[in-house]
């Protein structure tokens, strides 16, 4: 239960970190909050030759307003997301979902960027990124590139990050007026990974119908899942139980094969996905209506 040996570096700038990644080769790993990586090290399921600790890079931990939305440094901790007034005002979905990540002692360390780069299909924040149509800045010694969240998550624990790249910034566009959001999940015990989770954003038109709905799920597919068919079903409809039911049916019929394990069967997860979709949409719509009154 002790990590194997590794070389350890704690750079103070992103440029130093990318240079170290180049120098240390493909067996090197970045360390952010460490709440997923340290268990893997302790169990020796991961044996990196070098750890490049990002925690000393002050410029990676920030939350700034940007064009009605937000830009966040990758090292922003989940406990900060939960409590930050700017996040609460502009992207309450992120604060609501961050609260479901592990326990307080985990959230004091775990980071937004770490969760995204780790890409656990059961994790909440990757699904939230899909629902908020986030874009990520990836920095390497060759420069920056920007990638949409939708293109970033390529498989279970797999992303579009190339070796040599650091996920540095998360950009969240602002929501239209009359928007509301909700994150709901079901887990057997508080703090456990969810059996299913749903992130919903509803934007209402002037006439009160649904102008746009965005829906993403975690824990039901090898990657976080955007429920495009359900979004199409909702467009232009009245925000009511009939609409939520139709969306839930679209979500469930679109699911391929949710994981089936000791914690819950595929059928149970399918059922949860439908129920949580209805509830999250209803709550998001209620909040959208309230935001206007």
């Amino acid at each position: 239960m002790k990590p194997a040996r590794f070389r350890y570096f704690a750079p103070h700038t992103i440029a130093e970190a990318t240079q170290l990644l180049d120098e240390q080769g493909e067996e090197a790993r970045l360390l952010a909050g460490g709440q997923s990586l340290l268990p893997l090290l302790n169990l020796r399921l991961a044996r990196p030759s070098a750890l490049i600790d990002l925690n000393e890079i002050q410029s990676l931990a920030f939350i700034h307003p940007q064009n009605g939305g937000l830009v966040l440094g990758a090292l922003t901790r989940d406990a900060t997301l939960e409590r930050d007034p700017l996040v609460a005002a502009r992207q309450p979905l992120l604060a609501e979902a961050a609260h479901y990540v592990g326990h307080p002692a985990i959230r004091h360390r775990s980071t937004l960027g770490g969760s995204l780069a780790h890409a656990d299909p059961a994790a909440e924040l990757p699904a939230v990124m899909l629902a908020l149509e986030a874009t990520f800045t990836l920095q390497s010694s060759n420069g920056n590139r920007t990638i949409a969240a939708a293109a970033f998550f390529t498989g279970p624990f797999q992303t579009a990050l190339q070796h040599g790249e650091v996920l540095t910034e998360i950009h969240l566009p602002g929501l239209p007026p009359r928007s509301g959001s909700a994150f709901l999940e079901f887990a057997r015990r508080e703090g456990d990974y969810a059996l299913a989770g749903v992130a919903a954003v509803i934007s209402l038109a002037e006439d009160g119908t649904i102008a746009q709905a965005r829906l993403a799920l975690c824990s039901v597919d090898p990657t976080p899942l955007r429920a495009a068919a359900a979004e199409t079903v909702l467009r232009g409809r009245h925000p009511d139980n009939v609409a939520w039911q139709a969306a839930a049916e679209a979500v469930v019929s679109d699911l391929k094969e949710p994981p089936s394990d000791i914690h819950g069967s595929a059928d149970y997860r399918r059922h949860l996905a439908g129920v949580l979709t209805r509830r999250a949409l209803a709550l998001a719509a209620q909040r959208a209506e309230r935001s206007h009154s």
């Binding site: 350890y8 704690a10 360390l31 460490g34 709440q35 340290l38 268990p39 302790n42 750890l51 600790d53 925690n55 406990a79 307080p104 002692a105 985990i106 004091h108 360390r109």
Partner: peptide, 19 residues
């Protein structure tokens, strides 16, 4: 192994001593 780091609870097993 819960301890407080700068007043905040953390898992001491999920932090490197150097951190």
């Amino acid at each position: 192994c819960t301890v407080l780091l700068d007043g905040q609870s953390v898992r001491a097993c999920l932090l490197l001593a150097v951190q």
